[in-house]
Design a protein around this nucleic acid. Sequence first.
RNA 1: UGGGGCGUCGACAAGCGGCAAGUCAGCAGAUUUUGGAUCUGCCAUCCCCAGGUUCGAAUCCUGGCGCCCCAGCCA
Length: 572
Amino acid sequence: MEEQKNEQVPAGPNNFIRTIVAEDLKAGRNEGRLMTRFPPEPNGYLHIGHAKSICLNFGLAQEFGGVCNLRFDDTNPTKEEQEYVDSIMEDVRWLGFDWEDRLYYASDYFEQLYEFAVLLIKKGLAFVCDLTFEEMREYRGTLTEPGRESPYRNRSVEENLDLFARMRAGEFADGSRTLRAKIDMSSGNINMRDPVMYRIKKESHHRTGDAWCIYPMYDYAHGQSDSIEGVTHSICTTEYEDHRPLYDWYLDALGICHPRQYEFARLNLSHTVLSKRKLLKLVQEGRVRGWNDPRMPTIAGFRRRGFTPASIRNFCERIGVAKRESIVDLGLLEFCVREDLNRASPRVMAVLRPLKVVITNYPEGQAEQLDAVNNPEDPDAGTRQVPFSRELYIESDDFMEDPPKQFFRLAPGREVRLRYAYFVKCEEVIKNPETGVIAELRCTYDPATRGGNAPDGRKVKATLHWVAADTAIQSEVRLYDTLFAAGNPNDTAEGQDFTDLLNPKSLEIIADARVEPSLAEAAPGSRFQFERLGYFCVDTVDSVPGRLVFNRTVTLKDEWAKLQGKGREKTG
RNA sequence: UGGGGCGUCGACAAGCGGCAAGUCAGCAGAUUUUGGAUCUGCCAUCCCCAGGUUCGAAUCCUGGCGCCCCAGCCA
């Protein structure tokens, strides 16, 4: 018995929605079909919260042999644009999902939806209301007081039919009339207080043009669209929980195929915001450089930043699906990218903040090529050659004149290894006589340690990355930190705007980083690990041959930074 | 004083009456030509609180407390 039970549970992360789907299938409901849908409104770019929904809906379909539709919820012409439609399709595909031939638009159903509305009028379940916006608000009542019925509520079916037809024909001004469902003005659920089904908007729609001047509301359009497509499980976020009675009401009143709605908690991620309204504001106010700014939590932003689709899918799997509201730590997302990038990224050496090193006992004018492993995690990745010469650059962070005990990189009199090259020892520190700033290090190398091993078996405590001064390529590197300094930027104090919590240091541009010459032909979008620094990708927008621009996707875990107490604010 | 939800480790999250999974983070150690990766061990006598039922409760009952959502002709 126990074992049988276990056999029934398919592999994969469990959650309550998956359990419901599995049970429905097992019970043979919906003729054994499973159909979900991802229904974005094309009024902005998709963000990581949408990725959670995409992974859930497409993932469930994939796992249980069902299908998932892509349907644009385009019922409000004033907010929607083709640019958003295009970006959404690109993002869903990039995440690795396929809606095949099931690309739908709510606007495809406008005629059918209109006929459904006529049917509800005929059944005496809908009426044309002439209340103004303000009047309707008054009649609606409040959270604690019931509403009052509209004086237009009892118009005859004939009059309603006539007026609704004339609304469609464009005889009335915007906002002058609505079509409303006749439900219950005293309901504790405000959604049931004679909700608006249609409003007049004489506006061009991105797909239907000027064919319509009345547009259906979300509540009226959504369930019926699900029904028309044959959706079995309509999965949305918890803020729609009290819309479910209305969702059910329309379907029952119409007597059509009745999908079931289930709600899960939307994703919140620490140190960022996931609301289209807020993201749009950041874009419009120029706080970021567009929807695909690498600091944005949008799919387009993460893509440009160098994240992989697999890392985002893994993240969505790990965070789970539940109903309680939560804020997922950004650290988990970072773990997911590192995990994926670690096994696949070619290693390369780059110096962000160059400190010149002269190897005094290395012959002037001499140069050699050293073998370097491309990816220690992947033997098939092979090796490459990196040039070595008398003058090098190392990371300025890798040298300290008067180091604390825990610092085991280069210091006066200390010997370290230059990765894949030689052991070098710091003999002299040269400073700018004016400023006292360290300008250059004089070191000696041990020719016997070529490749990085000492024949006498002596050890060094650190291995540094480096580039040869004469062959390194000067590049721009963009370092990103969290968009918001605050762990939870949605939690603003009185009189404070969420933009006040932006991290002023979210972007640092390094104009004169030096990267090893093998990167000369690196293609836009290609990803690398800069050894000891992090994962970087060639920017797809600004990088050009001869002037490479890299984005830092994520740093490597950094024990030394941790020892120095560098961290970010908690979620609170 | 309405309606709908939710409260399990620092952050997520399983669990559905039989004695607290897993992941991230953290800590300790091994290993290491990336202070990376990898490996090992540790990390909730306790599940918002208080009563009750039961041999037995995070799970059932009762009563509290706390948090979130809803008064767009937005989705």
